[in-house]
Simulated assay, not measured.
Amino acid sequence: MTRGLFNPKPLVFDKCDFKNCKITTDMQQLSTSEAVIFLHDSFSSLPKKPNGQVWIFATLESPYFTINRFKTDQLKRKFNWTMSYRKDSEGFSPYALLRKHVQSPVKNYTSIYLNKTKNVAWVVSRCRTPSKREAYVKELSKYIDVDIYGKCGKPCSFKEDCKTHLSETHRFYLSFENSLCKDYMSEKILRIYNNNINFLPIVRGAPNAGDYLPQKTFISTSDFESPRKLAAFLHMLGSNETRYISYLKEKDKYFDTVNGCLRVGICDICHRLNYRKQYSKTINLTKWLWENQCHMPNDIHT
């Protein structure tokens, strides 16, 4: 059973190892369901938990934007499993899974490169963040041009196709997350792997981004001691046609297949329900959210 999670109608289990699970949002079945999935912002209080029922905590947000939704005492010894972007979740639901094209797109990469007249673009709506990305960009802007759009910058006249159009004139895009947490990689990074988008992502977020992204398809701020050193590398790469195009071609070999949806992990949940005795546990959710997960930036000084 789900509560405030997603529309169950398109969810089927025909591609799962086990096909005997069913999802419902019928609240009349809350006390009789074998398991209940709670989205992190779908409840202000918890119902009485029947004996033997599995409670699953689901979120695609980082701990910074999850923990302030409810009281801490609600989280102690209530939940059994988790469903999130984290690899250690019982229902692993990454924002995206990059797949490789059978055949790489055919593009005139020289023309794409020569049409670019600007360096860095950024579309952003949250102006103050735990990752202090806004401070990083302020420092970066001292050494390379950065055009900022969205609520924290100037309006983008292209609306929904903003990034696509910006990629025609800009060489790089700031795929900066609001939090620096393990496994936390949202659409800010992964949608740049749309083949209609012709610039390179500069990644700042999960310290283990390399576990998800193919090498030579992105630039990571963690590889540079400071924004100044990153800017120097961007100037070098952006002025080298051969090397820049090699990055862009490599990026275009991949595409995003998920687009941020919790239902990806539903097969994992169904599997565990069929073997639930092997996965029996109760978790301290506050500890699970925070322990060894997030860090503050160490490459900027504010």
Rank of each mutant, 00 (worst) to 15 (best):
R3Q: 11
L5R: 00
P8G: 01
K9F: 00
P10E: 01
D14G: 01
K15W: 03
D17F: 09
F18G: 06
N20H: 13
T24W: 02
T25Q: 06
V36P: 07
L39I: 09
H40K: 07
F43N: 09
L46A: 10
K49P: 14
L60P: 01
S62M: 04
S62G: 10
F65Q: 08
I67E: 03
N68M: 04
R69D: 10
F70R: 09
K71H: 12
Q74F: 13
F79K: 06
M83N: 06
D88I: 07
S89H: 11
A96N: 15
L98W: 09
K100D: 04
K100N: 09
V102S: 13
S104Y: 02
S104F: 05
S104T: 12
V106E: 07
Y109G: 05
T110H: 09
S111V: 06
I112S: 02
Y113T: 09
L114A: 13
L114W: 03
N115T: 09
N115D: 12
K116F: 04
W122R: 06
R128K: 15
P130W: 03
S131M: 00
K132P: 00
E134F: 01
E134V: 01
A135G: 01
E139A: 11
E139M: 04
L140A: 06
S141Q: 11
I144H: 00
D145R: 02
P155I: 06
P155A: 05
S157N: 14
S157V: 11
S157A: 12
E160V: 08
L166P: 03
F172D: 11
F172I: 05
F172C: 08
L174S: 09
L180V: 07
L180M: 05
L180W: 04
M185N: 13
S186A: 06
K188S: 07
I189T: 15
L190M: 13
R191K: 14
R191A: 05
I192N: 10
I192R: 06
I197S: 00
I202N: 05
R204A: 10
A209H: 13
G210P: 07
K216G: 05
F218V: 03
D223P: 10
F224I: 07
L230F: 12
A232E: 14
L234N: 05
H235E: 13
M236S: 13
L237I: 14
G238M: 04
N240D: 15
E241C: 09
T242Y: 12
T242D: 13
Y244C: 14
Y247I: 06
L248E: 09
K251L: 12
D256H: 06
N259D: 12
R263I: 12
V264Q: 14
I269N: 05
C270Q: 01
C270K: 00
H271M: 11
K277W: 00
Y279E: 08
I283C: 11
I283S: 11
N284D: 15
N284C: 02
Q293N: 11
H295F: 11
P297A: 06
N298L: 01
H301R: 08
H301P: 00
